[in-house]
Design a protein around this nucleic acid. Structure first.
Length: 498
RNA sequence: GGCGGCGUAGCCAAGUGGUAAGGCAGAGGUCUGCAAAACCUCCACCCACCGGUUCAAAUCCGGUCGCCGCCUCCA
């Protein structure tokens, strides 16, 4: 028993996470087919499961995380042919790009990352086992899974074979015994990469690799298997059929599926062509912004992608880092002020921080509740920063130190506050200005003009320059050290109504 | 057609049968040359609608309406 409750797609309910082996978690995530750049749907998926992975570790579990690359696939072969290159090279190129995106988003590397191209023996062995069991049959160089042989086929997608055939859009092949039978092995066509097998030259079908890799890494059963909601059927359904059909044992104890990224309230998908790559988004926004955006909706619900939503996240992260910058400066300069006395500001909140964080995350990784907690933490930080009276300094400093610790604790999972605040704010301002089509030089010039006017107490001119900047989206903040500025990302909240 | 999900303030969005988190926007205040930032206060007698179960429901059950997804490659 772990006290962690997770929503499991198969049972349709939240269930307490009970590891197969005490204190150990076998976690498998379906990886990408590296035929193109990764998009924000991938970002959502792998951020969501990165948080799962990091949280389970924080909760003291010994987690082994496996995520595959489906690097042998029609789409890769077709794309490589279009570009006149070898499929392996295209896959490798996209895998490297995938790593750049994932690393930028602070998504931890899994413990193992098997590839189809290097897992052929396991895949072939599994297919042979299924044929031996009578669950699969060879047919003219292909091998198909006989869905009718698997009693509970359809249990994950909650539909029966009859349901599926009713709306069937599946092409009927004469090689198949049942229209829903799916390929485990495909005979090689001319010019395609192929591997030797008992059924001749060929390559694996789509779903078999995850069954083979998962069972190779973990044995017949894993604790958690996750992926996007679109994989429930047919991919995960077929994995269940393959794995359980081979072993006769339960394959996965908890199925976790993340919701889609929508664009304009419509599903973002490759076929609709309305997708954004991670690379493009990261040119306009810092990775922390995208990460915050992703955790600002529960991972199972759909999330709507828009500039307005990213702008709001960008402002929020800027607020976090602005506070951290001040907090760090305070901690740096406020040494040797004596011992704290009496209750610290926010003492109860600070004491309960970890427990509350755990409670929220235990409830199916409820990052929203954590965000509420962060709101409190940053308010407290700013409050502490205002306690500048000498007598209060020891307590303010002690609270500030604790706050930094608590935020670091939460950040082992969230990965939002790892950057140097000053560096982050520089990058943020550069990108925020660019988004508004403003040059940093122009802003600096205007700020300079206004400083001159202010030093002459020419308030009318100072205000005029400030209004000019404001109209462009730049907000000024006069302080003791001079004038700082920020780009106000959030425009009028009202969307364009028709 | 079959199956699944959703409908919470102007917007985004949590909500674990016990009396509505949080963010944005908005209003007032502290601070300030004036502002901004920051902080404080306020901002849903109510959770699409109708009925039911219960001492008690946004939360459970049934129905109605609306939206979305899956049934084909997709995270």
């Amino acid at each position: 028993m772990t006290g962690i409750r997770v929503y499991d797609t198969l049972s349709g309910d939240k269930r307490t996470l009970e590891p197969i082996e005490p204190n150990k978690i076998r976690l498998y995530a379906c990886g990408v087919t590296p035929y193109d750049n990764s998009h924000i749907g991938h970002a959502r998926c792998y951020v969501a499961f990165d948080i799962v992975y990091r949280y389970l570790k924080l909760a003291g579990l010994d987690v082994t995380y496996v995520r595959n690359f489906t690097d042998v696939d029609d789409k890769i072969i077709n794309r490589a042919n279009e570009r006149g290159m070898k499929a392996v090279d295209l896959a490798e190129e996209n895998i490297q790009a995938f790593y750049r995106d994932m690393d930028a988003l602070s998504i931890a590397r899994p413990d193992q990352e098997p590839r189809v191209s290097t897992s052929m023996p396991q895949i072939i062995a599994l297919i042979e086992r299924l044929i031996g069991n009578g669950m699969a049959y060879a047919s003219e160089g292909d091998v198909y899974y006989a869905v009718e042989k698997f009693q509970s086929y359809g249990k994950l997608g909650k539909r029966t074979l009859e349901d599926m055939q009713a709306g069937a859009r599946v092409e009927v092949s004469e090689k198949k015994r049942h229209p829903m039978d799916f390929a485990l092995w495909k005979a090689a066509k001319p010019g395609e990469p192929a591997w030797e097998s008992p059924w001749g030259q060929g390559r694996p079908g789509w779903h078999i690799e995850c069954s083979a890799m998962s069972m190779h890494a973990f044995g017949p059963c894993v604790d958690i298997h996750c992926g996007g909601q679109d994989l429930i059927f047919p991919h995960h359904e077929n994995e269940i059929a393959q794995s359980e059909g081979a072993t006769g044992q339960n394959f996965v104890n908890y199925w976790l599926h993340n919701g889609f990224v929508n664009v304009d309230n419509e599903k973002m998908s490759k076929s609709l062509g309305n997708f954004f790559t991670i690379k493009d988004v990261l040119q306009r926004y810092e990775p922390q912004v995208l990460r915050l955006f992703m955790v600002s909706t529960h991972y199972r619900s759909p999330i709507n992608f828009s500039d307005a939503a990213l702008d709001e996240a960008a402002d929020r992260i800027a607020y976090f880092y602005e506070t951290l910058r001040k907090l760090d400066a305070f901690l740096d300069q406020a040494g040797g002020v004596g011992a704290p006395f009496g209750p610290l500001p926010g003492e109860a909140f600070l004491e309960e921080f970890e427990a509350r964080f755990r409670e929220a995350m235990d409830e199916d990784f409820n990052t929203l509740r954590v965000l509420g907690q962060l709101a409190e933490a940053f308010k407290l930080a700013n409050e502490v920063l205002m306690m500048r009276k000498a007598k209060q300094l020891p307590n303010a400093l002690a609270a500030a130190k604790l706050l930094r610790e608590k935020l670091a604790y939460a950040d082992t999972v969230l990965q939002l506050f790892g950057a140097d605040p000053a560096d982050y704010l520089d990058r943020h301002k550069t990108k925020a200005a660019a988004r508004r089509g403003l040059s940093l030089d122009w802003i600096a010039e205007k700020v300079g003009d206004r400083l001159v006017a202010r030093s002459e107490k020419n308030w009318a001119e100072a205000d005029r320059v400030r209004d000019e900047l404001l109209a462009a989206g730049v907000v000024l903040m006069d302080g003791a050290q001079g004038t700082d500025w920020m780009v106000k990302d959030v425009r009028d909240a009202a969307p364009a109504a028709e």
